[in-house]
Design a protein around this nucleic acid. Structure first.
Lengths: 216, 216, 216, 216
DNA sequence: CATGAATGAGCATTCATTCAT
DNA sequence: CATGAATGAATGCTCATTCAT
């Protein structure tokens, strides 16, 4: 950046730095608008190094998507493992997911907001990443809500539906957070659970909302 | 395009056709990747005409955003007006919103998925559009949930929070719908209400979810 | 070039001018070293026009190869048609070929000297062009030498061999001509016939050269 | 490359290996398209070594041209020395030349096919090399054909003309050979003599081919 | 002696935008 | 009103060449 003049770094370190820089630029500008020169500048190296390490702009993008989707999925699994009860595990997992989305804005934007219309390889990679993240949430939802009996179990489709709603809500709430800087991520998580979990639970209990009828 | 050879159209009609074309292209490709040539082709006119009508690529984009955000907001208001009870109005409004998001994929993508980092004018326009849409939902949520008494009223912040969650969930569920083509939008709306409304209502009643404690 | 400021030319004319320019640059520099900017400058237009008309550097090259190989083959056929006897037709054909090679140095260099290692499409195009030129010479050689009887006919292989020798000799002699500016192409043609035709004819007559034996 | 790990080689040997590699790459790709990295890889050493030994890409090319033109000229001289009669010497010399061209494809391509438009130093070197090779052939032709008497002697110009024709024919026939793998180089040499020598000899004897006249 | 790490400069290609008709 | 023709200004990518070790 500023001070790093002609440092000789081992490949693995440099590579991570480049991916860091790329993530920031792709997130801020989008795939097409991102300029490799800017990534190189941000990484404190010259463009040819970027190409030596990651091969192409597409390679840069794919590297970002891969690394970040793995990080996100890992954050999930680790948090969810720590819980005692299913509810706790879901809460912990959602908290981790939400914290990740809130903190690693760049990662999330690249993973979720980039339109998957950038050529076959990229579209595939994005699709894979999203699938893997969604699968993690989906698993949490199913495990969390299932209270043991077979009857409690939400069907595959239901869980998927809820997972999408959750992920979408969390995503959108990152915007909300930016306009409410005072709110700590934990409170946001609780609030989201407030709205979503109760609904999910009641759904299980059979308390289902029905469309109101027009007054006769 | 197909049959439209050298038609003489009134300014207003032609302009709408151009915006239609632009919307499709911006949605499919994203702002940067969108190519004005393609928009002109799709509109069945030459590029200079596009520039004559909308001035610039940025002008095209802004026109899309303005028109679609107005349409979306209008769909809201109209649907919400028709309801008898607050709950009904919320349901109708959400249904309209959801139907719009599901049906007008292009509009929604341009309105919500485009990163607002494409220059000052565009960023402003996108921000405005999102604010206006969110305000509409926000109003519905406040009206819908407030059952009359002052005590029932969710605070400004709460409503905004819920509105964000709703919009995000709905957005994300458009992806879900694409993978479940059999589900009609109405069922998706009901399902979303299933999860969200019950939660929202219970929140009002005071039944608040609390983070589970670790076993001592 | 110099005076052509912002001329509006019909596509077909401009296209030929661009190919003219490209031919000169490819000939002078070789495919890789050729710079599209130089071609554009030489054609008196901007680079985007070049791409609009011929699509790519490869497209430029292929257009050159196609046009020039057709011109060369046509020059052949026309000249050879005019002759009365086979010998005359061969002489006329060779003269035309030789005049073409000598006059259109650029065409010949692009057709014959460019290494066929520039990617599949180009290699194929070059190979096709060479084959077509060689086939023309080959046909002349066979027709020219064949004096009617079946016995006189050189086999396919022989004709091909002779054609290669002829073409190579003519090619090489263009260098010689550049160092002997006084020699008119006609004299060079005669000289080449002097050496080659007599050999070819004698071969037919059975007067075959045999390797000299070492003195015992 | 394969087994050569960190071998310590004397300068002269390593240098030859580098030139070997360079020759292959320059021949296959042409000067511009040749990439120094590939040369270094092929030589089994790192790029800085290449630069240490030969100084620059241009230096590599010049080294190739020098070494190969000397080899070719030497092959000539040696073969021509062994002959008893002038005819025998010419035949032997041409055979050597032809064998060289056919066998050392790379050398010949670099020497003869590379466009001499790559900068002053290279152009000069290529020109020198070609001149020296051509001088050798020229000498053979003059010596070979001259049967003693002054009258038999072809003029300087004639010999040069014939030399160019010979070299060009031989060059072109290397292409022919690639499509007729069964033909041994010796037969090709004989065949070439068949066509060329008889013509050359007859020219000396005064049997000159004259352009056929149109039928009156 | 030998190399992994690094870069300045160049080139093919694209695209928003504007004239001349 | 409408368009074909044209371009300036990027941007992705490559390559000869050089340090620091």
């Amino acid at each position: 950046m500023t001070d790093k003049r002609r440092r000789r770094l081992p490949r693995s370190v440099r590579e991570q730095e480049i991916i860091d820089a790329a993530l920031g630029v792709f997130s801020k500008r989008g795939y097409r608008a991102a300029v490799v020169d800017e990534i190189a500048d941000l990484a404190g190296i010259s463009k040819p190094m970027v190409y030596l390490y990651l091969g192409s702009k597409e390679g840069l993008f794919i590297a970002c998507v891969r690394r970040e989707s793995q990080r996100l999925a890992a954050a999930f699994r680790e948090a969810a493992q720590a819980g005692d009860s299913p509810e706790q595990r879901l809460w912990a997992g959602l908290g981790a997911f939400f914290a990740f989305v809130a903190e690693h804005r760049d990662s999330w934007v690249v993973l979720h907001r980039q339109a998957p219309e950038q050529g076959e390889a990229i579209a595939q990679e994005i699709a894979d990443a999203r699938r893997s993240v969604m699968a993690e949430v989906n698993g949490l939802v199913r495990d969390g809500i299932t209270k043991g009996g077979e009857a409690d179990r939400l069907g595959e489709q239901e869980a998927d539906f809820v997972a999408h709603a959750l992920v979408g809500a969390a995503d959108s709430l990152t915007d909300w957070m930016e306009r409410h800087p005072g709110e700590p991520p934990e409170r946001v998580t609780v609030r989201l659970m407030n709205v979503m979990w109760v609904g999910m639970r009641n759904v299980l209990v059979g308390e289902v909302w029905v469309p109101p009828q027009h007054d006769a």
